[in-house]
């Protein structure tokens, strides 16, 4: 994308209608806003969004990386800005349905972190079905935040422990992009704790998702070796 669409003269022309901002996650400790990706709801690279001047996320770009698709995302962001303003006005007047829709929209746009979303949810009166629906979203949000905090072996160990706690509580992310990282974290934790049953469970889940893809084979080979070593050590 960087050497293609983003470097084209057509993109340079289109971009005159927006403010272009590029954020580089560097892991350099002195760099400002290193957690910006997470704060804006991202959980991987590249990540493209449209924000307003207050930094509020109005649209995520999940489509093709073409100028036409960028433009469609921009138009969607403009509509969302209008819709959010209407929902905020209705919510302020006590409209219960608008409050729920506003929370759903804010979570989906990455405007709230897990703690903020959990707190906002407590303020709403929900049916069992609505609670279950929001809970599913919160599980994805929690897993995303834990995984985005992994920057070193130490933070990985801590994340693995938290993910294992989530699993013990039956909290498994439904988003495919998160589930891979989630189960890898579980593997690391299971290895550290010499928990063979947990390791096997993690490996089984990863196989279901990626086992048939040749590109993932080297990783599965490594994990199989680790599992064998764990079994041998236990005797």
């Amino acid at each position: 994308m960087e050497s293609g669409t983003l470097s084209s003269s057509e993109f340079a022309e289109w971009s005159k209608s927006v403010v272009l901002f590029c954020h580089v996650t560097s892991r350099v400790q002195s760099d400002k806003h290193q957690d910006l990706l997470t704060r804006k709801g991202g959980n991987g690279f590249p990540y493209l969004i449209v924000m307003d001047g207050a930094g509020t996320v109005l649209a995520r770009h999940d489509a093709d990386r073409t100028i036409a698709a960028f433009d469609a995302t921009l138009k969607s962001a403009e509509k969302t800005a209008k819709s959010l303003a209407e929902l905020e006005a209705k919510s302020a007047q006590g409209d219960a349905a608008a409050k729920k829709e506003l929370l759903r929209t804010r979570i989906s746009l990455g405007q709230l972190n897990f703690e903020q979303a959990s707190a906002a949810l407590k303020e709403l009166t929900l049916s069992d079905a609505e609670k279950a629906d929001f809970e599913k979203t919160l599980v994805n949000l929690e897993a995303s935040e834990i995984l985005n905090g992994v920057v070193s072996a130490e933070t990985h160990a801590a994340a693995g422990k938290r993910l294992a706690q989530m699993l013990a509580a039956g909290r498994i992310p439904s988003e495919e992009q998160l589930a891979g990282g989630y189960w890898q974290g579980i593997l690391k934790h299971a290895e550290k704790e010499a928990d063979i049953a947990l390791y096997e469970r993690g490996l089984t889940e990863l196989r279901k998702m990626f086992g048939s893809d040749a590109r993932a084979k080297p990783y599965f080979d490594d994990w199989e070796k680790t599992l064998e070593a764990m079994r041998a050590k236990k005797g």
């Binding site: 590029c22 804006k40 493209l48």
Partner: peptide, 10 residues
């Protein structure tokens, strides 16, 4: 104007 943000890593 709105901000078109691209997140990458180094």
């Amino acid at each position: 104007k709105l901000v078109f943000a691209y997140f990458t890593r180094s």
